[in-house]
C-alpha cells in the first residue's frame, strides 16, 4: 500500500455519489457498518435509503436484520443484533 501523505485529499475529493458506488461493492452490511463508523460523511452516505435499497438488491435481502431507517432518530441499523 503506497504511503499517503497527511494532507492527501484523495478520499475527501471523491463526491458522495462515487463514495456510494464504492460502498455498493462491499460484500455485506458488516463491512458497510464499519465503514460508516469511519466518519460522519461516510455514515451519512452509507445510510442513504436509496443506497441501502440498491445494496440489498445487489447482495440479497438482509438476513434477520437490516437497516432500519424509519423515524427519528435516524439509525443506520436496527438495534437488535443477529440471532447467534
Amino acid at each position: 500500500m503506497p504511503k499517503v501523505g497527511a494532507a492527501s485529499p484523495a478520499v475527501a475529493s471523491v463526491g458522495d455519489d462515487l463514495l456510494g458506488d464504492i460502498f455498493l461493492r462491499l460484500p455485506d452490511t458488516a463491512v458497510l457498518a464499519r465503514a460508516a463508523l469511519a466518519c460522519k460523511r461516510w455514515r451519512r452516505v452509507a445510510s442513504d435509503p436509496a443506497l441501502l435499497r440498491r445494496f440489498h438488491s445487489l447482495h440479497g435481502p438482509p438476513p434477520l436484520l437490516g437497516f432500519v431507517m424509519s423515524g427519528p432518530p435516524p439509525r443506520l441499523f436496527s438495534v437488535e443484533g443477529p440471532d447467534r
Partner: peptide, 20 residues
C-alpha cells in the same frame, strides 16, 4: 477501493484512507 475496506476495523479504515 472497496477491497481496501474489507476485514478492517473503523480505525484501520481511517488509517488506510487518511480520514479524520
Amino acid at each position: 477501493i472497496s477491497e481496501m475496506m474489507k476485514g478492517k476495523s473503523p480505525d484501520q479504515i481511517r488509517e488506510v484512507f487518511n480520514i479524520k
